[in-house]
Design a protein around this nucleic acid. Sequence first.
DNA 1: CCGTATCCACAACGATACTG
DNA 2: CAGTATCGTTGTGGATACGG
Lengths: 138, 138
Amino acid sequence: MARALDVVSSRSALLIMREAFYGTTRFDDFAERADISAPVAAARLRELVEDGLLEREPYREPGQRTRMSYRLTDKGADLVPVLVALMQWGDHWLQPAGPPVILRHRECGETVHAELSCAAGHQVSADDLELAVGPARS
Amino acid sequence: MARALDVVSSRSALLIMREAFYGTTRFDDFAERADISAPVAAARLRELVEDGLLEREPYREPGQRTRMSYRLTDKGADLVPVLVALMQWGDHWLQPAGPPVILRHRECGETVHAELSCAAGHQVSADDLELAVGPARS
DNA sequence: CCGTATCCACAACGATACTG
DNA sequence: CAGTATCGTTGTGGATACGG
């Protein structure tokens, strides 16, 4: 987890990732929607590309010059549960007016949330957890 | 989510929360296990108590003077899915040796992970998501 | 053992101005 | 539109030293 935090522990990094998850691809849109300044957006986008969470892809609209678009890689998309869990927590505890954005399952239309579950499919609450030392524990 | 990040966007805050989740309650243990300096631990613990994620509770062992212990509040415990999702991501993408800590379901012994699911009980992947504007969208 | 006080370094961020 | 350059401010964090 400490390593994960080295990559995404800054406010702007998570906000950029949220926007990428929302489907934002263009520089100015990242800056505006995440409400961060352009220099910060530039720095963060560069780092996130370096770390393999986003990929820069040139594209060209007919008659326009080449632009860059930023999209989630698999590594970046795998961070979505973190983003959703964070939104959920913020909506529940810090947002009096209720969630500004609602996530739905495309197939059935039901609302989506992040939760803990075990390999047997049970839903797990935080105090049903047992901790065990894994292979990489020094 | 931006509000959530105002509370927990710092590296040390999440590491402290992880330790609290692991069951750490004492000042020195927080500093040592999260590998942060004592002043930072003190500052972060104070802020997390102010924000209602942890609660300070005096306790006294027989014959000892009063000590303080820090424990998760409901608000803090509700952050556990975020922590688990973050660990999972770090273990998968940044930790070549595999997970240092394994979480198990107390009842059935199976490993636990964070995932997205919908109100109908389906497991949901990141690209099965649809975004809708919620009540608090300005 | 449980912190606090001080000082310092560096990272994060915003504002502004500028370029292709 | 898509950035870069520079500057100043604040936040985050380590080191050290100190007090209950």
